[in-house]
Write a protein that binds this DNA or RNA. Structure first.
Length: 580
RNA sequence: GCCGAUGUAGUUCAGUGGCAGAACAUUUCCUUGGUAAGGAAAAGGUCGUGGGUUCAAUUCUCACCAUCGGCUCCA
């Protein structure tokens, strides 16, 4: 708690320093956060200014000023903050007649506290102004963008240095850096920003994951479907995406004429428009509706690794975790109302199984129950009954499965509530991966039905789910999780054979033949052993097999395990043994 | 999209108002090696793109583009 107060007090010290260095600054808010604090304000700054501000803060801290709390009437507060529009806005929202203010020297802030007693309690070496960022007032992009100054703050200098070191280490496991170093993927402007090009070693990782994915889906009673990348505008109008999802979609493609006609500015006679798919759902619904269904057919579980395209603002793009074209490991489960609960539970089990299989500790995954914001009904499709039922059943299932989840109002999709699973990246940012969503919107819009046991038409329930979320994001997080040193089964190259000299290449090829079935490379470069070992380690290959005269004569191999020392000379059989 | 930072060889990075630099990677040659870098040579650049200032711009300046950190949004 003590540290929380220091962080918060530091934000006041920061504001005080700004006030004494710059004129006419409009202050917004300045809370404590996970590793420090920030303050939002209206002031023009460059990153170079931070040093000066930090020095000023230290000066303030050294001069031992106390934090004085006072409770005053709103009227008095309005007078004090008459030149502070953001503070005035905050005062207006306070329900009580009085407000609390804190004074630090000549800096007065609207603040409930608590604070430390005096600046002398702050260790001047335990904090550091970190970075400058923009942040919208109240987090709304329609509002003015303020300047946010982030500061780091810890108990002492050691903890601060430790954190800074940790961040430097984290940068080394950034998947974007690893993607380059391990030759896995890249993106480039000429192809299109936010569109990933997978190199051979990256594509094989993808393929291994996809094979595993599809095998497990078949085992879990799913069937595979396959659908196009574009679809008629009429489909998207009917699905509701045209209306509710247009901010994330690309504009229509005119398909009633060729590119040549278009270049020649030919007149469009009968316009026909296609849209790039941002989701796979409507296609799966079309497959369902292609023939009448009985209650006996349900549940249907249809899976597809479908590549979707979404309009993401340029500033939002990031490596593999945020792209414009990505492949979802999508599936839709169409079932009867009495099957909903069991289906949801099975999906949760499947999700947990996936995390375990890829080495993610379930404790490192955060779960959110995303609900609608009832104040903004305009943003959601479907009836209240549908929302009430689906929200409550999702909550029930999450509780029964003992998921440690947080409820988030206003985070639902336009078509239904969802259960989201998020994983942190190397820098501590959370990314949504698995998602389990309700969709009672499409069933209605597309008149989906089945004949029940009484011979009546009934509307099915539709669940939408993704386990990885998208291959791109999941692989990105996987790379960061393992710092590029993927487990044996996922490694693009599992074994690298290092012939001591060119004379041993033949024996290396013999060994490669004996290890058929594994992904193997022979390092035929004219380098020293030391150099080849180094390269193999840098490529993060799980096993390096050194073969020379000694091994050739005794029909053995020298095994070196990634990151470890020499495991010694052994037979191929023995090597295959330790692999199991 | 918005705020801030960055942009020089495939990669990591020096540098300068006057012919563009290193290391690693690449190619060739020498070397034929025993568990994290053997030696030499060659090749490799529209200094992000486009304007402006200047005798001269990679360098100063403006605009744009991309990347990175945030905000908003999101698988």
């Amino acid at each position: 708690m003590e540290l929380e107060n220091i962080k918060h007090s530091l934000s006041h010290v920061l504001a005080h320093a700004i006030q004494s260095l710059y004129k006419d600054v409009k202050f917004a808010i300045g809370p404590a956060i996970e590793n420090g604090f920030y303050y939002d304000m209206e002031v023009e700054l460059k990153e170079d200014d931070l040093k000066k501000i930090e020095d000023k803060m230290k000066e303030i801290i050294k001069s031992d000023i106390s934090f004085e709390q006072k409770t005053i009437t709103k009227k008095e507060a309005r007078e004090i903050f008459k030149d502070q529009p953001y503070k005035l806005e905050l005062i207006d929202e306070i329900e009580e007649d009085t407000v609390s203010i804190y004074t630090l020297g000549n800096f007065i802030d609207l603040c409930k506290g608590p604070h430390i007693k005096s600046t002398k309690e702050i260790d001047i070496n335990s904090f550091k102004l970190d970075k400058l960022a923009g942040a919208y007032w109240r987090g709304n992009e329609k509002n003015k963008m303020l300047t946010r100054i982030y500061g780091l703050a810890f108990e002492n200098k050691e903890k601060l240095d430790q954190y800074i070191n940790l961040m430097e280490e984290a940068e080394k496991r950034d998947h974007r850096k690893l993607g380059r170093e391990l030759d896995l993927f890249h993106t480039e402007e000429e192809v299109g920003i936010g569109l990933v090009l997978w190199h051979p070693k990256g594509a094989i990782i993808w393929r291994i994951i996809e094979d595993f994915w599809y095998q497990k889906h078949l085992e879990n009673g799913y069937q595979l479907v396959r659908t196009p990348h574009i679809g008629n505008r009429k489909l998207w109008e009917r699905s509701g995406h045209w209306g509710f999802y247009s901010e994330s979609m690309y504009p229509p493609l005119e398909v009633s004429q060729s590119l040549k006609d278009n270049k020649d500015k030919e007149e469009i006679k009968d316009s026909e428009q296609f849209l790039l798919k941002p989701m796979n759902c409507p296609f799966h619904v079309s497959i369902y509706n292609n023939s009448p269904k009985s209650y006996r057919d349900l549940p249907l579980r249809w899976a597809e690794t479908g590549t979707v395209y979404r309009f993401e603002k340029k500033g939002e793009l990031s490596g593999l975790t945020r792209v414009r074209g990505f492949t979802q490991d999508d599936a839709h489960i169409i079932c009867r109302k009495d099957q909903v609960e069991d289906e949801l539970k099975e999906v949760i089990d499947f999700i947990l199984f996936i995390y375990k299989s890829f080495g993610f500790d379930i404790d490192s995954v955060r779960v959110y129950l995303s609900l609608r914001d009832e104040k903004n009904k305009m943003n959601y499709a479907g009836s209240d009954e549908g929302w009430n039922f689906s929200e409550s059943v999702l909550r029930k299932v999450a509780l029964e499965k003992n998921l440690n989840f947080t409820e988030e109002k206003g985070e639902a999709a336009f078509y239904g509530p969802k259960l989201d699973f998020k994983i942190k990246d190397a820098l501590g940012r959370e990314w949504q991966c698995s998602t389990l969503q309700f969709d009672f919107n499409l069933a209605e819009r597309f008149n989906m039905s089945f004949t029940n046991d009484k011979g009546e038409k009934e509307q099915p329930y539709m669940l939408h789910r993704a386990l990885f979320g998208s291959f791109e994001r999941f692989i990105g997080l996987l790379l960061e999780h393992y710092a590029g040193a993927l487990p044996f089964w996922l490694s693009p190259i599992q074994v690298k054979i290092i012939p001591v000299s060119e004379n041993h290449i033949d024996y290396a090829m013999e060994i490669k033949e004996k290890l058929k079935g594994y992904r193997i490379e022979i390092d035929k470069n004219n380098d020293t052993i030391g150099k080849k070992i180094r390269n193999g380690e840098m490529e993060k290959v799980p096993y390096l097999l050194v073969v020379g005269d000694k091994e050739r004569e005794s029909k053995t191999i020298s095994v070196r395990q990634r990151g470890k020392i020499d495991l010694g000379v052994m037979s191929i059989e023995k090597f295959l043994e330790i692999q199991k």
